[in-house]
């Protein structure tokens, strides 16, 4: 099979580019440890409260250390449960100081949901049977929308909360 000289150049350039991309991604993944979430930790979707983190009193944002937070979320059709405030009202607005690290943990008792703090890298699928989790650092102050980005039924687009990154 004969390849034109220029086609060889093109394929060498193309394959070289693909390898470069893969090396950059592989370096990020296996040297720096930046993976998309994948922990494989299972949970019974009908018994999510059996897990300490998802008991009603542990939901929402908790400060564990200076600049260290945990955010436990139960995503269900069509609501994000972020716990309740002092008056017993559901929390729909959380504030996180800029630059702090947040360990997000999310589960669902029903169907598949998305967890996306829009405009950030905090983007995960939330599937029945698994605990979704990832650590994020939000570096830009502002008001972000936490929303469901996987279709979960007729009220899918009504599923949201606000994440405010404060100065």
């Amino acid at each position: 099979m004969h390849l034109h000289k220029y086609e060889k150049w093109w394929l060498i350039f193309g394959v070289g580019t693909l390898i470069t991309f893969l090396l950059i991604l592989g370096y990020g993944a296996f040297y720096l440890g930046t993976h998309p979430q994948s922990h494989g930790i299972t949970i019974d979707p009908q018994e999510i409260e059996a897990e300490e983190s998802f008991k009603p009193e542990n939901l929402g944002l908790t400060k564990v250390d200076e600049g260290q937070y945990v955010l436990n979320v139960v995503a269900s059709a069509f609501n994000y449960d972020l716990g309740t405030d002092e008056e017993g009202k559901p929390v729909k607005h959380i504030q996180i100081p800029k630059g702090s690290t947040v360990l997000v943990q999310a589960v669902t008792p029903d169907v598949i949901h998305g967890f996306n703090i829009a405009g950030t890298n905090a983007n995960m699928m939330v599937e029945p049977g698994f605990i979704s989790s990832m650590e994020v650092t939000l570096n830009k102050a502002g008001e972000y929308t936490l929303l469901c980005n996987e279709y979960c039924g007729s009220g899918h687009h009504m599923m949201f909360a606000t994440v405010e990154v404060t100065e």
């Binding site: 394959v15 693909l18 893969l22 296996f30 993976h35 979430q37």
Partner: peptide
């Protein structure tokens, strides 16, 4: 971005995905 699939195998399939670009370059 799914919680239950191993990272290594996600990455292996990423490499294979990049291979399928080659015939399109051709």
């Amino acid at each position: 971005t799914e919680p239950g699939v191993q990272t290594t195998w996600k990455f292996v399939q990423i490499i294979l995905t990049f291979m399928v670009v080659v015939p399109s370059l051709m």
